[in-house]
């Protein structure tokens, strides 16, 4: 029986998107669990930011074997930007990294992100979504900075959940 390419691809595509949706939903389910276990005094934003830190730390560790200095500082920062954009893509976003005008400066753009839609279903404030993303990326850099003995920073300049149409992060070498 010949392969019906359209059918195979559409099945795979649906499965992929289902899995991506589940990434977001599972995170927010666990957020609810953590808030309930933490008790009435806890601020949900603190829980979310702590989760971002723990995940960022682990993602940073995962990046260490994949990054290297062989292409020099500029190449390294661009590679790192691409790796960060790649995390977003895996989750279902449309993201990419591009060189900035200044040396050692890379911009990471995301024009489609599945997290705000999922957050809405769970009643999560949009500002928490934006700050969580920023904290996640900042924490990724912690181990990377120590490992490669460099001081990189990442700032969030725009965020979809703030109604700014896209995420824009600046990854750069701090003095």
């Amino acid at each position: 029986m010949p392969v019906n390419a359209e059918k195979e691809i559409s099945n795979l595509w649906r499965t992929l998107h289902g899995a991506q949706t589940e990434i977001c939903n599972t995170f927010y389910r666990w957020r609810d669990v953590a808030i309930e276990v933490a008790g009435p005094g806890v601020k949900p934003l603190d829980v979310a930011l702590k989760a971002s830190e723990m995940m960022g730390k682990d993602i940073g560790k995962n990046l260490l074997p994949r990054l290297n200095w062989l292409k020099g500082e500029e190449g390294f920062i661009l590679n790192l930007g691409n790796a960060i954009a790649g995390i977003w893509t895996t989750e279902g976003g449309i993201a990419f990294a591009e060189k900035g005008e200044n040396p050692g400066e890379v911009f990471i753009k995301c024009t489609r992100c599945p997290w705000p839609s999922a957050a809405k279903q769970f009643g999560v404030p949009m500002e928490e979504v934006a700050l969580s993303r920023e904290r996640l990326f900042q924490t990724i850099l912690e181990d990377v900075n120590v490992f490669f003995n460099i001081n990189l920073k990442i700032d969030m300049l725009k965020a979809i959940p703030r109604g700014e149409g896209m995420y824009l992060f600046k990854l750069y070498k701090a003095n």
Partner: peptide
Amino acid sequence: STVPQRLR
């Protein structure tokens, strides 16, 4: 120095 491990 405290340099993170590359290999888990």
